[in-house]
């Protein structure tokens, strides 16, 4: 099951790559690098999330920081 989801993710990433890569100008070196970095970042995160869905997310982090204030509103 998980393998299928990962495969689907990889297909999606491949699609994005195939769609966008030819559209980036040859001269845009930096753009290419950023594109690759962001995409691989996404892929890694996606695989991490698939393998471990209970990974603490950004919301938990923010909630941790703002807890003292947030408690004011809790009923």
């Amino acid at each position: 099951m998980k393998a299928g989801v990962i495969l689907g993710t990889l297909v999606l990433v491949a699609l994005i790559f195939l769609y966008e890569w030819p559209r980036i100008n040859r001269t845009q070196k930096k753009e290419k690098v950023v594109f690759i970095v962001l995409l691989s970042l996404g892929t890694i995160l996606a695989i991490m999330l698939i393998l471990n869905p209970d990974l603490p997310g950004p919301t938990q982090m923010i909630e941790y920081i703002y807890k003292p204030l947030g408690r004011m509103l809790e009923k």
Partner: peptide, 16 residues
């Protein structure tokens, strides 16, 4: 039209 673009199109359609 490069092969890459063609592949992208085919893949796009099939995913759809």
């Amino acid at each position: 039209m490069s092969i890459v673009q063609k592949a992208a199109k085919i893949l796009f359609v099939s995913v759809h």
